[in-house]
């Protein structure tokens, strides 16, 4: 059962396509000859070049939604498009706030199941197989949808690497939004953007993460300093998020962000399975923990058995000294 066409849901803002959509385009391109991007917002023409360059031949855009939450109007527009011109074989979505909603809306509207939390996809004899991590990532479960298309898959971000394909700018097709009645009535009245210096957590190549082992919220400053010093992003465990030390946007793990940096520094973190699933994809892992038996050492390339509150200040000092000596970058 060859796959012919995949829709990839992308997000963009102010003419900049989010990396998650580009990652999914790279995966879809390997599986299907025709890949089309689903899009909303007023910047379809501006992202046509980058989406085309990553393999989308066409952008199906719902246009500017003027404050409506996207899931309901986008699902309605896609359902109408499917009704008129037939379904794609699959729709690939990212587990973002809006796209999880979109997956739910589409699934119920089209009466199709959806496979969520996928961390890989391959082509099997009977269609696409989604890979899922079970038991804290120790097990891979592969699942397939038996319902008619479209098959809906929601991937964890950072599952694939984005890769330009060098295609021409994508064509833009504007989809009409049918009346969604009461279901479409939720409206954004104000957007609050938290200030964040440095790279976004899920895009950073260095992530410095702190856990309860720091002992005290004020010591989280050590994490922030080290992250800044290494040009990376600070992060935390659910334990420190729930304790109110840092906002939810810092949380790495099953119920937080998935990261795949070049290096992940875990400081005072035990390495619970729900944390590990969010960071095990890092190329390198360094862990500092005073307990030699902490599970985090099971995944660390370099493990330091020691007190974070002592090691981190010395590390920061040594990095400063190294700068003064004109150390290389």
């Amino acid at each position: 059962m060859a796959v012919g066409r995949i829709w990839v849901v992308t997000e963009s803002s102010g003419g900049v396509a989010s990396p998650a959509g580009l990652e999914l385009l790279a995966a879809a391109r390997r599986l299907a000859p025709v890949v089309e991007a689903v899009h909303w917002g007023g910047d379809a023409a501006e992202v046509a070049a980058v989406l085309g360059g990553h393999g989308a031949t066409r952008i199906l855009t719902v246009g500017d939604l003027e404050g409506a939450l996207p899931a309901v109007p986008v699902a309605a527009a896609l359902a109408a498009r499917i009704e008129a011109s037939g379904p794609p074989d699959a729709v690939f979505l990212t587990a973002s706030y809006d796209q999880r909603d979109l997956a739910g809306r589409l699934s119920a509207r089209l009466d199709r199941p959806v496979l969520t939390n996928a961390v890989g996809v391959t082509e099997g004899a009977d269609g696409l197989l989604a890979e899922h991590a079970a038991f804290g990532g120790s097990t891979v479960v592969r699942a397939r949808i038996t319902a008619p298309p479209p098959h809906l898959f929601v991937f964890r971000p950072r599952t694939f690497a984005a890769e330009a394909a060098g295609g021409p700018p994508a064509d833009v097709e504007v989809l009409a939004v049918p009346d969604t009645g009461a279901a479409g009535a939720a409206t954004i009245v104000h957007r609050h953007v938290a200030e964040r210096a440095g790279p976004a957590l899920d895009e950073a190549s260095v992530v410095v993460a702190g856990g309860r082992g720091l002992g005290d919220p004020s010591r989280f400053g050590l994490i922030e300093q080290l992250a800044r010093r290494l040009g990376g992003a600070p992060a935390g465990t659910r334990a420190v998020v729930d304790a109110g030390w840092v906002p939810y946007s810092y949380q790495v793990g099953q119920t937080g962000t998935t990261v795949k940096p070049t290096v992940y520094l875990a400081c005072g973190i035990s390495g619970a399975t729900q944390h590990l699933v969010g960071m095990k994809g890092a190329r390198h892992i360094v862990a500092i923990n005073k307990d030699r038996d902490a599970p985090i050492f099971g995944v660390a390339d370099l493990g330091v058995v020691g007190d974070v509150t002592k090691v981190l200040p010395r590390l920061l000092e040594a990095l400063d000294a190294r700068d003064d000596r004109g150390g290389t970058q």
């Binding site: 099997g124 990532g137 097990t139 891979v140 592969r142 319902a147």
Partner: peptide, 11 residues
Amino acid sequence: ARQVIVDVAPS
């Protein structure tokens, strides 16, 4: 549910 688990393997 119209979905099936095809296989399970250690990662």
